[in-house]
Simulated assay, not measured.
Amino acid sequence: METKRAIIVGATSGIGYATTMLLISKGWTVGIAGRKEDVLISMKKQHPGIIAIQRIDITSDDATAYLMQLIEKTGGMDLYIHSSGIGFQNMSLDADKELSTISTNVTGLTRMINFVFKYFCNHPNKKGLIAVISSIAGTKGLGVAPAYSASKRYINTYLESLTQLCTIRNIKNIHILDIRPGFVNTPLLRDSQYPMQLDVNFVAKKIIRAIENRNSITTIDWRYRIIVFLWKLIPRCIWVKMKIHI
């Protein structure tokens, strides 16, 4: 059976790491990227011949050149998983935090997904999967995290637009997945008091299932599906008057 090859950006911790380990257990060859080179090297040593590595900072202009190097090291790409993102509670509107969030979650993501989309377009005989870890935070504007929730809304809309673009251009070989977890127990939320935190390995299993089933949109866990449903029912004029603290 032909080896399946995945590229995971943001693989050195949290959801990206857990998903990497699960794909390896299922027989995938995986190319992993992140900014922590020491972690990348350690992961490769633990799984020689299965993992290829490349340090990539998605906020840098040269990120896609390094991504192409990683694809070549991995021997190709059937699946791209984007798990790279940051977020802050920022009710004081610290400008550096807002701009850093946009640089990573919007500009960096667009840079990488644009490249991957074109890569699969240039390989029309290869079925390509693009899976992005977004968030339920894109459902509504959250006053405690303005740039973060806005960036996640951008991701949701961008992926929807690319899916429609596939229809417009009659692109048959690309399938795009928008995966929306709630709070996940990862280093990003360590020592926090966020409610309903999901186990990261549980989330990774749900991600793999969404990939296998080609689910265009996946909100992970039934409790968050209920929350999102209820959020969508709240009119904007009421929502903006609600004092929501997370």
Rank of each mutant, 00 (worst) to 15 (best):
residue 206 K to M: 05
residue 200 V to L: 11
residue 193 Q to F: 10
residue 224 Y to K: 00
residue 214 R to Y: 13
residue 227 I to M: 13
residue 188 L to Y: 05
residue 219 T to S: 02
residue 228 V to N: 01
residue 199 D to W: 04
residue 214 R to Q: 13
residue 193 Q to Y: 09
residue 206 K to P: 01
residue 206 K to L: 02
residue 192 S to D: 09
residue 198 L to N: 01
residue 204 A to F: 07
residue 226 I to T: 12
residue 219 T to N: 05
residue 196 M to F: 12
residue 207 I to G: 09
residue 191 D to Y: 13
residue 220 I to Q: 02
residue 191 D to R: 11
residue 195 P to T: 06
residue 224 Y to Q: 02
residue 221 D to E: 10
residue 217 I to P: 04
residue 217 I to F: 08
residue 193 Q to E: 13
residue 226 I to A: 13
residue 218 T to Q: 08
residue 191 D to G: 07
residue 196 M to D: 14
residue 208 I to K: 10
residue 191 D to P: 00
residue 186 T to F: 06
residue 220 I to W: 03
residue 211 I to T: 08
residue 204 A to C: 06
residue 186 T to G: 04
residue 222 W to A: 12
residue 211 I to V: 15
residue 205 K to S: 14
residue 211 I to S: 06
residue 220 I to H: 03
residue 188 L to P: 01
residue 213 N to Q: 15
residue 210 A to V: 02
residue 220 I to A: 02
residue 203 V to P: 02
residue 202 F to P: 00
residue 189 L to T: 15
residue 201 N to D: 12
residue 186 T to C: 06
residue 186 T to S: 04
residue 229 F to E: 06
residue 186 T to D: 05
residue 190 R to G: 07
residue 211 I to R: 06
residue 195 P to C: 08
residue 205 K to A: 14
residue 222 W to D: 11
residue 215 N to A: 12
residue 200 V to E: 08
residue 190 R to V: 12
residue 206 K to T: 00
residue 227 I to K: 08
residue 189 L to W: 06
residue 211 I to G: 06
residue 194 Y to L: 15
residue 224 Y to M: 02
residue 190 R to H: 14
residue 211 I to C: 11
residue 190 R to T: 11
residue 187 P to M: 12
residue 205 K to E: 15
residue 219 T to P: 08
residue 201 N to K: 10
residue 207 I to F: 09
residue 194 Y to N: 12
residue 219 T to C: 05
residue 197 Q to R: 10
residue 190 R to F: 13
residue 186 T to N: 04
residue 201 N to F: 04
residue 209 R to F: 09
residue 199 D to V: 03
residue 225 R to Q: 15
residue 191 D to L: 10
residue 190 R to L: 14
residue 215 N to Y: 10
residue 188 L to F: 13
residue 221 D to G: 00
residue 214 R to L: 14
residue 219 T to E: 06
residue 229 F to R: 11
residue 191 D to E: 14
residue 212 E to R: 09
residue 202 F to I: 01
residue 220 I to K: 01
residue 226 I to C: 11
residue 207 I to S: 08
residue 199 D to E: 12
residue 206 K to R: 13
residue 228 V to D: 03
residue 201 N to R: 06
residue 225 R to G: 05
residue 195 P to Q: 07
residue 198 L to M: 14
residue 226 I to K: 08
residue 200 V to Q: 09
residue 220 I to N: 03
residue 214 R to I: 08
residue 229 F to I: 03
residue 215 N to I: 11
residue 212 E to S: 13
residue 194 Y to K: 10
residue 218 T to S: 12
residue 203 V to G: 01
residue 223 R to D: 03
residue 229 F to A: 13
residue 224 Y to T: 01
residue 209 R to H: 13
residue 223 R to K: 14
residue 201 N to L: 02
residue 212 E to Y: 05
residue 223 R to Y: 03
residue 209 R to M: 11
residue 200 V to C: 09
residue 224 Y to R: 01
residue 204 A to D: 08
residue 196 M to K: 10
residue 210 A to I: 03
residue 191 D to C: 04
residue 191 D to M: 10
residue 185 N to Q: 14
residue 207 I to N: 08
residue 223 R to S: 05
residue 205 K to F: 04
residue 212 E to T: 13
residue 195 P to R: 05
residue 200 V to N: 05
residue 190 R to A: 15
residue 186 T to K: 03
residue 185 N to E: 15
residue 193 Q to V: 10
residue 221 D to C: 03
